[in-house]
Each structure stands twice: as C-alpha cells, then as structure tokens.
Simulated assay, not measured.
Amino acid sequence: MRNSITRLAASLGLGASLLVGSLAAPAVAQAEGKIRIAEQFGIVYLLLNVVRDQHLIEKYGKAEGLDIEVDWTQLSGGSAVNDALLSGSVDIAGAGVGPLLTVWDRTKGRQNVKAVASLGNFPYYLLSSNPAVKTIADFTAKDRIAVPAVGVSVQSRFLQYAAAKQWGDKEYARLDAYTLAVPHPDATAALLAGGTELNGHFSNPPFQDQALANPNVHVVLDSYDLLGPNSPTLLFATEKFRKDNPKTYHAFVQALAEAASFAQNDKAAAADTYIRVTKAKIDRDTLIRLIDNPKYEFTITPKNTYPLAEFMYRIGALKHKPESWKDYFFQDPQPLQGS
C-alpha cells in the first residue's frame, strides 16, 4: 500500500521529499555556531519556512558575533523526529505536542528535552471519505485512518482524547487499531484518489483544505471542538544543546519571534514564502485565504497544551505528571506566557 500511496501523491502533485535511509549514529556534540533543525509537512511549519527563507537565524547570530551554519531536515511523524533528536542527528525537533510530552517524560532527569516555542494555533481535522462515518463512533474495522505516527503523533493523541471523551478513559485506545502511519502528502493523495483501504485522515493545513475541496470528503472531528484553540505543534531541544550553545539558541528564538510577527501581519508574503520554500502545488490566492483564517494564529507562545498533558498522564502514557505547561517548556524570555 505504501508504494501505491506514494505514486498517488506524485501524480496529484502533493508529494514531498522524505528523508531516505536510516538516521546517523549518535553524533558528536555540535559546537556553538551550528544548528540542525528537523521539520515536517504543512502550514503549521510556516514559521520555519520564514526563518529559512529570510536567513533569520544567521541574522541574529551575526548580532551575537557568530556565523551560524543552519542545516534543515524534513521527516514525517513524531517517532522519527524524537529518534533523530535523541540520536544526536538534529538539535531542534519540530513535532506535535504529543511527541514532545512523550520525549519530555522519557528524558526527564537525563537529556531533559523540553519545548522551546509553539509554531502557532491551528485546528486539525479528522477527515473521512466514507459517507457512513459522521462521528468517531461510526468508524469500524473496515475503515483506516492515516496519522503521521501511530499512537505517538498529536493526531493520534487527539483521536485518543476524543475516544476517551466518547467511551471513557479505559477505552482511549479503541480507535488505534484503525490507524496507519502515512505522511500527510501521501495520505491526502490516497484519500482524494480512493481505491485503497485508507478512507480517513487526521490531517493538518493545507492538506485538510485540499482534501475538503473534494465533495466526497467531510470533517468528522475538529480538534478545536476537543480542546478549544490550541498549539498542536511545538519545537523542542535537549537541555545540553540549550546550555552549550547559548548564542545559537538565543538567535534561534529571536528568529522565530520575528517570523511569527511577519506571518501574522503579512499573510500574502507568508503565502509566497510557503510556496517558495516548500515548492507546494497550491494556488496562491487559495493559500492566502487559508492562512487568513481567523482561527489561525502565528505565535511562538503556547496555548492550551496542558489538557493533553494531563490526559496523557491520566491514561498512563506519561510516568511524570507535569504540574503546568512550564514543566515541559524551557523558561526563556520568549515565550513569556502560555498554557
């Protein structure tokens, strides 16, 4: 199925380059002046697109008297991103709040991975092309739902949160058996083309909007209905990288803050940046309208992440209970306030 889905993605112009091959063995610690960033797919990573396009890390590095070398890697799924961070292959990981909480819990007292910043607030939609599926209670063993990483990605955690809300905490994993790990571009292509077992996708922008342009695809669940406006995707790092590279780290946070202001205040330029950096096959005017959605907020300040953290502890997915969002975020001058 994987090969057929990939071919579908290419034929529909939705495919993107995936990292091929295994991750390197644990790398030698990076000296001040180099940063390696792992991102994934979608508009939720727009701030990183702006940072990259405008060379903002390099700009703020020079202000610190430092020439910073920036390396970019694209992965799919929180598991791959967490593995890359813990293996020493990357310094900054971009993934959902679910993977962040998992790796924070796993490394507490050792590498002490924590979040650096949010990438903004966006609703994520659970989509289906099966007309019989109106709510999550309608999914059956005949349905398959694409998520970036089974059981770990923020989409998987949202699905578990919804299942617990529907059937109780003991049934939080009730829909896990119906999920498949498929990158967003490939899952969108498969959902649009049909002809495979995959008829559901817990998506993100702009892929969910591209899919919804097809009248056969509909929204089953909106993540904002579960948690209210929230920051589903975060950037995180190890305590060692932050401590050993203070100038590089500071330049990165300043770059993100400028990128957030740029994206929030100039949606047309932000859309142009996304198309230019990602080479996405999406109509510019359509993308501008999408980015201008009042539900979208480009900000580095996290919002409403703690309910998912509390839920994951409650179901046993976390061994350590965070008392607040501050437990799993580095306390830097930015972001100042969060939740």
Rank of each mutant, 00 (worst) to 15 (best):
D138S: 14
G33F: 00
A10I: 11
A38H: 07
A177G: 15
K279N: 14
A27M: 10
T233Y: 15
P183M: 02
K59Y: 04
V277Q: 11
R7P: 01
P307K: 06
N199M: 03
S324T: 14
I136L: 09
A9C: 03
A38E: 10
Y224N: 06
K326H: 14
G42Q: 07
P26E: 07
Y45F: 12
I43V: 13
G194M: 11
Y306W: 13
A268D: 14
A137F: 06
F158S: 14
G316L: 02
R314H: 15
G151R: 12
V150W: 12
P215Y: 11
A268N: 06
Q208I: 07
N245M: 04
G228R: 04
L47T: 08
G194E: 11
D292G: 15
G200T: 02
L101E: 09
Q264A: 08
A9K: 01
E297A: 12
L256R: 01
Y60T: 07
D186E: 06
A269E: 15
G77W: 12
D332R: 03
T196D: 06
E32A: 02
W167P: 08
Y328C: 05
T233W: 14
A164T: 08
N49K: 03
A162E: 11
S129T: 11
N49C: 00
L47R: 02
F139S: 13
A16N: 10
E323L: 14
Y161I: 00
R157L: 05
G15P: 00
N199V: 08
V28K: 02
I92T: 00
A259K: 01
T6K: 06
K267D: 03
L127P: 09
T102D: 13
K326F: 07
A162V: 11
D332M: 05
S223A: 10
Y296E: 03
A162D: 10
V50L: 01
S128Q: 05
A27C: 05
Y328M: 02
W72Y: 10
V90T: 09
Y161W: 10
F41L: 08
D186Y: 13
T135P: 12
L75Q: 14
Y125I: 01
V277W: 05
I43H: 05
S11R: 12
A162Q: 13
I300R: 10
L234A: 06
F122P: 07
S118P: 06
L66P: 05
L101Y: 09
A9G: 12
S203G: 08
N293Y: 14
R242M: 03
N230M: 03
K62V: 02
G15L: 05
S324C: 09
Q208D: 14
V182L: 11
D186F: 10
S156Q: 07
V51S: 01
D138Q: 09
K165C: 00
A269R: 15
G109I: 03
R2P: 04
S324N: 13
F241C: 01
G88V: 03
A189D: 08
K34D: 01
P335H: 03
L48H: 12
A211D: 11
T305Y: 12
G13T: 10
F241Y: 11
L101K: 04
